[in-house]
């Protein structure tokens, strides 16, 4: 029987170590190449979360279908974001589309 508290403390140490890894070196100045690369971290990471979230909502199965509200409302949110460049409008509009679609498709637990 493994000690679960030992596991929790180990996970704490490892998780904190990854999150603090670069915050730990305030005097470190990145070389130009790294700095250039870091400019692409938000774009790359967020795209890599969003697009699979739209096309494989359960994380396993492709849902390239018209009854996939994640895909359709996600596309609507992308359009709203491109046109307005407004975060709140994107969230509000995207969420509204999402729930209207889910409601119309009978996918809400009502």
């Amino acid at each position: 029987m493994m000690d679960n508290w030992l596991l929790i403390l180990g996970m704490l140490a490892i998780t904190f170590a990854t999150r603090y890894s670069l915050f730990a070196f305030p005097d470190l100045r990145f070389p130009p190449l790294v700095r250039q690369g870091l400019h692409y971290v938000p774009t790359a990471v967020l795209s890599a979360i969003v697009v699979p979230g739209m096309l494989l909502p359960d994380g396993e199965h492709w849902a390239l279908r018209l009854d996939n509200a994640y895909l359709l409302a996600g596309l609507a949110a992308i359009a709203i974001a491109a046109l307005t460049r407004n975060l709140l409008a994107t969230i509000g509009g995207g969420f509204l589309c999402f729930f209207l679609l889910r409601w119309a498709l009978g996918q809400l637990p009502l």
Partner: peptide, 22 residues
């Protein structure tokens, strides 16, 4: 059953609103 509401879409919509203008 909260999962069935698809609240996780809120995160996707926020990430979209952040990444598209970038």
């Amino acid at each position: 059953n909260l999962e069935a509401w698809g609240l996780d879409f809120a995160m996707l919509a926020t990430f979209i609103g952040i990444v598209v203008p970038m």
